[in-house]
Every structure is written in structure tokens, then in C-alpha cells.
């Protein structure tokens, strides 16, 4: 892996305190949402598994803060954070995770397949790298329809193993498509460190196609947001795609059932990231240090998020399952 390149100078002077606090609220919402997903799994109230986004919140929120509601995103198996950051409501998210009729996909998709056209979410995807084509195709459509939108493709560094990504990155640059490839390097493809699966340099892959490349500290939302804003505006202007490499870490297991992790990563490593590189703490401490907010405000924000999310969980637990007739509906467009 090449040395971390200097990111473009973050231009954060134009961001006011209200907007930082909004980003903080979004990150807290994701964190508390995911904590409840874990609880639902552990109390056997949620069918199947889920992949938690805790630790990576600054990326989804920082990027989506720079997007408009009608811009597109595609997401991954670790997708709750992206969906919420792009504007999904917590109650219908929980309903989907519990397989209920009021869920975003009527209970048919579940944790790994949340899609919501109203918020520009073209769908989470359980095939690693599977949405690279979709995001690039959406960017092609944007260009043809001349709408000025942008498409963001979120994926983990594991997707760098998939050939599809290279086919579409080539075309994206060739045709100057408005797509941002956001690579979330949380160091592990499931239980394997990226260095055991990824040769050479991450950025060089995209640079080979002549794609604009940027690298950010994914734990620092100030950097994520300001860089995202620049590259998104660049894409909107018609100057083409960007590959945005974000360094991050998932605080929990690969999925909720991945509890004994010592065979692939150390407790010290986990503790170090949690203590020193927590994206929520990084932002709140900075705002307090800058005298832009009082410590107590962050407690209030968290308490509000908790009560909203507890209500949403209750709602989803009590919501009805889909009618059995749903099983054969939506296979084809009627």
C-alpha cells in the first residue's frame, strides 16, 4: 500500500455548526440503530444475520451529506449506514430487518437488500462488488438524461477482487460518467486482512484508467465531507468519475455472529481504533474544543436518538408479517 497521499486541503470553513451537528445526529442514529440490530440478533428476534457499520459512520454520513436527495447511491451487505445516511427512516428499516410487510422491501429483501427509490437508494447488495455495474449504469443514465445528478457506489476493499469493478471503471472514465467509487477499507475481507488478498496499491488500480483519485481518513467526517463535496461537484460538472479511498475500521465482527475474532485480529487493535479513532468522538471533541458546542449537547442528541430508535424497534416488532400471497408477487412487473 502506498503512503497516504495528502488529501486536498479540507475546505470546512463554509460549514456552520448546525450542519456539523446534523452530521453528528446522523452518525449517532446509525450507531444506535446498529446497536439495536445486534440486540435483536442476540435476543433471537431478528431472522438471519446482519453486518454492522459501527465504526465506519463518518463515511456514509460525510458522503451523503454532500449529496442531494435525488442523487443515487448503491450499497453493500454492510449497508444500513448508507441507507440511513441517504434518508431512510429507522422504523421501516427495522421492519425490513424483521421481515415485516411495512419494511422498505415489504420484508422480501431483509438486511442486505434495502432499496428506496424515494431517497435515491438503488439498493444494498449481497454480492461483493455486485453494485459496481448498477452505479455506473445509473451514472450513464444521468448523463443521457442530462439531469445533473451523481451516483455513488459504496463498496468494501474486498470488492477490489472482482473483475466487474475494473470493467466499469474503465468505461466510467472513458465516457466521463458522474460516478464516485467510495472504497471503504476497513482492513478485512471477512476474516482475511486485505494485505493477504490485495496486491499492489489500491489507488493505482483506478489511476491506471486515468480516474481522479483521492484518499481520506474515513474516521474524520470533516475530511470525508469536504473531499466528497469537491469530487461530487466535479462529477456534476461533467469532469468524470472519482475513486475515493477511505481508511476505516469496523468495530464489531464481520457479521453479528462473528464474536470470537482473535484468530484474525487482536483485541489491542480493536481497542486502539475504538478509543482513538471513533468518528463520533472525533467530531464531538473537535466541536467542543472549538467552543462550537457544549459536551452536554451531545448527550442530549444521543438520548433523543435512543428514544426515537427504541420506538422504531417497538413498532417493527409489533408490525404484521406480509400476507402469504406476497410470495409470488413482484417476480415480474404486472
Amino acid at each position: 500500500m502506498a503512503k497516504k497521499k495528502q488529501p486536498p486541503a479540507p475546505d470546512i470553513s463554509s460549514v456552520d455548526v448546525e450542519q456539523w451537528l446534523h452530521m453528528y445526529e446522523q452518525m449517532v442514529k446509525i450507531r444506535v440503530f446498529e446497536e439495536h440490530v445486534n440486540d435483536l440478533y442476540r435476543s433471537a428476534k431478528m431472522p438471519g444475520l446482519a453486518h454492522l457499520y459501527i465504526g465506519e459512520e463518518a463515511i456514509a454520513v460525510g458522503v451523503c451529506e454532500a449529496l442531494n436527495r435525488d442523487d443515487y447511491i448503491t450499497s453493500t451487505h454492510r449497508g444500513h449506514g448508507h441507507c440511513l445516511a441517504k434518508g431512510a427512516e429507522v422504523d421501516r428499516m427495522f421492519a425490513e430487518l424483521l421481515g415485516k410487510a411495512d419494511g422498505y422491501c415489504r420484508g422480501k429483501g431483509g438486511s442486505m437488500h434495502i432499496a428506496d427509490p424515494d431517497s435515491g437508494n438503488l439498493g444494498a447488495n449481497a454480492i461483493v462488488g455486485g453494485s459496481a455495474g448498477i452505479a455506473t449504469g445509473a451514472a450513464m443514465s444521468i448523463k443521457k438524461r442530462n439531469t445533473g445528478q451523481v451516483a455513488v457506489c459504496f463498496f468494501g476493499e474486498g470488492a477490489l477482487g472482482q473483475g466487474l469493478l475494473y470493467e466499469v471503471m474503465n468505461m466510467a472514465e472513458l465516457w466521463k460518467l458522474p460516478v464516485i467509487y467510495v472504497c471503504e477499507n476497513n482492513l478485512y475481507n471477512e476474516y482475511t486482512h486485505y494485505s493477504e488478498s490485495t496486491a499492489g496499491d489500491f489507488m493505482a488500480r483506478a489511476q491506471a484508467f486515468g480516474i481522479n483519485c483521492v484518499e481520506v481518513d474515513g474516521q474524520d467526517i470533516r475530511e470525508v465531507y469536504s473531499v466528497a463535496q469537491q469530487v461530487i461537484e466535479r462529477a456534476r460538472r461533467g469532469d468524470g468519475p472519482t475513486f475515493m479511498l477511505c481508511h476505516t475500521y469496523r468495530f464489531h465482527g464481520h457479521h453479528v455472529g462473528d464474536v470470537n475474532r482473535s484468530y484474525y485480529r487482536s483485541k489491542e487493535e480493536e481497542d486502539d481504533w475504538k478509543t482513538n479513532r471513533d468518528p463520533l468522538k472525533t467530531l464531538s471533541e473537535w466541536l467542543i474544543g472549538q467552543k462550537m458546542a457544549e459536551r452536554q449537547l451531545f448527550d442530549t442528541i444521543e438520548a433523543d436518538a435512543r428514544s426515537e430508535i427504541e420506538k422504531a424497534v417497538e413498532y417493527a416488532l409489533n408490525a404484521p408479517y406480509p400476507d402469504v400471497s406476497e410470495v409470488e408477487k413482484h417476480v415480474y412487473v404486472e
Partner: peptide, 14 residues
Amino acid sequence: MDVPIPFSPVLEDL
């Protein structure tokens, strides 16, 4: 059944 496998247990079991 000739459908994509649904997530919801009440549907998947069918």
C-alpha cells in the same frame, strides 16, 4: 417455488 427467495420467514418457508 419459481420466485427469488424472499427474506421474510413467513414467505421463505413457503
